[in-house]
């Protein structure tokens, strides 16, 4: 009995031709795009001391400022929670209709997806500007902006989750004579619930950060104070706002990790 010959790897695989080619292509594209856009690494190095000056100032946070921003930070969190909840609630029916494994009707599915693409295309700053104009300066404009922004993002994340579920339980529910709603309730929701919660909290985290920027446009929350401190070159106050926001983001992250472990 002779040992079978080990087949030779083709030379393309042996020398990792495609991996090397891709790396080279991406580096070349990066260099080309920096040249095309005028992003200049030399300028970055020449002005780096400006940046260190700023960093030095920011490294001495004015902790006294904390008492000023606690209230607006609280408002920011409320805005983010409200906006994310409203957006996610609307996202659930839309994501179910956009999932290719649940909706066979291609036309309906693509219409829904087109609508969702449209919503995602609208930049949150534009939305905030519009709603500030409509509802006036304040957190109402912020909540609505965040709701729409979350809706667009969460819908896409949700329907991509739905498309990865195990179809077996759906077949089983169909075979016992379940109606569509019952099938979704019994066979789809249990499979996606923990990822929904995880994406909801991820969106909440993004919204806390986004709402700091929205404050620039008068949409309420801590952004107003961020803008004020930057305008006054009061970088030690800016540092406090950033650190406080970091704490909020970290808390949300902790809750998210915990819930995911519990719900898994």
């Amino acid at each position: 009995m002779s040992t079978p010959e080990i087949p030779q790897r083709p030379w393309r695989q042996r020398y990792h031709v495609s991996a090397i080619a891709w790396t080279v292509t991406i580096v070349v594209l990066l260099i080309l795009s920096s040249m095309a856009t005028g992003a200049n690494f030399g300028m970055f190095l020449a002005n780096i001391n400006q940046f260190t000056v700023l960093l030095v100032q920011m490294s001495h946070p004015a902790w006294a400022y904390l008492s000023v921003i606690i209230q607006p930070l609280y408002e920011t969190i409320q805005m983010a929670i409200l906006g994310t909840t409203i957006g996610a609630a609307f996202a659930i029916p839309f994501s179910l209709l956009a999932a290719s494994n649940l909706v066979g009707n291609k036309v309906l599915r693509n219409l829904i997806r087109l609508f969702l693409d449209l919503v995602r295309t609208l930049p949150d700053l534009l939305l905030a500007a519009i709603f500030v104009a409509v509802f006036g300066i304040g957190s109402t404009a912020g909540v609505i902006t965040l709701a729409i922004f979350s809706f667009g993002m969460v819908s896409k994340l949700f329907y991509e989750v739905i498309e990865t579920i195990d179809m077996g339980p759906l077949e089983a529910m169909k075979s016992v004579g379940a109606s569509k709603v019952t099938i979704i309730w019994y066979a789809v929701l249990p499979q996606i619930l923990n990822q929904f919660v995880s994406y909801f909290l991820y969106t909440l985290e993004i919204n806390v950060r986004a709402s700091t920027v929205l404050g620039y446009l008068g949409a309420g929350g801590i952004g107003v104070y961020l803008q004020r401190s930057l305008d006054q070159f009061n970088y030690s106050a800016t540092a406090v706002i950033i650190l406080a926001t970091l704490v909020v983001v970290m808390v949300i992250d902790g809750v998210s990790n915990h819930l995911r472990r519990v719900l898994l």
Binding site: D166, G168, P169, E171, A172, M173, S175, V176, G177, A178, S179, T182, Y186, A187, P190, Q191, L193
Partner: peptide, 24 residues
């Protein structure tokens, strides 16, 4: 109907899976 891959809802309790036979 029973299947090769059982097709239970894995995250749900056995009781809920058994009761789901009744939804029709």
């Amino acid at each position: 109907m029973i299947f090769q891959n059982f097709n239970l809802v894995k995250r749900a309790t056995v009781e809920k899976n058994v009761l789901s036979g009744l939804v029709g």
